[in-house]
């Protein structure tokens, strides 16, 4: 079951369309990556899910129910551009934000104490926010976002502003929350973290969704059938052995040690290639070159933009 479905969302501003018929389905208890270049429409979509703005057309469902104001208490949101009241004490502020999410004061206080201890910032309860370092503030913001145990957690560039240690702390918290049943929607430019964390993604470019699905499926789909081999033996023998079913793209030779990049042609499989080569070479490694999310992102967005330019010329 999906925790959130956004169907055919359209959002227009006076001069441009921010979202053009975007449909996104976020399965329960998963981590969903919302990707796309700057200005693609990610934040617009996130704001619509948070009901900060409304769509011009399209429908949203939260656990199958039409999304309404009562659902805000089940959503936690950490915006990309985030801040706190500078002159307000940390604890007081966290309590205020938690109460706005519908928590009672006592409950919020109890849970905040737990989280503050966990993140080792309990000494900061009475300090003003302006006295905190940026990283500390980020921790407070993260706590406030997850405190009311939302079913859906929306994190916009959650790792920006954190040092590697704290980023790792947050990463583990995200995985932990997922284990406990939360669903996480997060938007990022950091493709490494997408591969590491996300189950599914949607890629938005120029206000349209251009790609979506599970990360594994997508990477499979964008497979280029290129393999990298390391072996010792005669390079010439190697080329002769594989020539029918594959094409040598690149190779380096260092004495007896060879490295080759090979693209399989037609219906040739990795196994076919290995069988052909084993008699002539001593294989040290054999690895399929699966495209990274970064490659896929650049490829898809790059192609899209190239098409756009072309169509502009023909118009």
């Amino acid at each position: 079951m999906n925790i959130l479905s956004a169907n055919n969302i359209v959002k227009r501003y006076a001069s441009h369309t921010a979202l053009n018929d975007v449909t996104v389905e976020i399965p329960k208890q998963s981590i969903f990556g919302l990707l796309g270049p700057n200005g693609a429409g990610k934040t617009s979509l996130i704001r619509i899910i948070n009901q900060i703005t409304g769509p011009d057309s399209g429908e949203l469902f939260f656990e199958g129910e039409r999304l309404t104001q009562k659902h805000v208490e089940q959503i936690g949101y950490l915006p990309e551009e985030r801040g706190l009241y500078k002159k307000m004490a940390v604890g007081e502020q966290a309590l205020y934000l938690a109460q706005l999410k519908g928590m009672s004061k006592q409950e919020a206080k109890r849970k905040l104490k737990e989280w503050f201890e966990k993140f080792e910032i309990d000494a900061w309860w009475n300090k003003k926010v302006e006295e905190l370092s940026k990283g500390m503030q980020q921790k407070v913001q993260f706590i406030v976002t997850v405190l009311h145990e939302p079913k859906l957690l929306i994190l916009d560039e959650p790792f920006s502003g954190f040092d590697p240690i704290n980023a790792n702390l947050i990463k583990n918290e995200i995985l932990d929350l997922k284990k406990k049943g939360s669903t996480v929607l997060f938007s990022t430019h950091n493709m490494g973290s997408v591969e590491e964390l996300c189950d599914n993604i949607a890629l938005i470019n120029k206000s349209k969704k251009v790609l979506d699905g599970s990360v594994r499926e997508i990477r499979k789909q964008y497979k280029t059938n290129i393999f990298e081999l390391e072996f010792s033996g005669n390079m010439m023998g190697f080329t002769n052995a594989m020539w029918t079913g594959a094409e040598l793209l690149d190779h380096t030779t260092d004495g007896e040690h060879n490295k080759a990049k090979v693209k399989l042609l037609g219906k040739t499989t990795g196994n076919d290639l290995l069988q052909a080569i084993i008699p002539v070479a001593q294989i040290q490694s054999f690895k399929e070159m699966v495209p990274s999310m970064n490659d896929i992102f650049i490829k898809v967005v790059g192609e899209e933009n190239a098409d756009g330019t072309q169509s502009n010329f023909t118009e």
Partner: peptide, 17 residues
């Protein structure tokens, strides 16, 4: 102040503008 210290978006995820 709310706009420039960017707390507004956090609050707006809980209440109406």
């Amino acid at each position: 102040e709310e706009k420039s210290n960017r707390i507004v978006e956090v609050i707006l995820s809980s209440v109406k503008p």
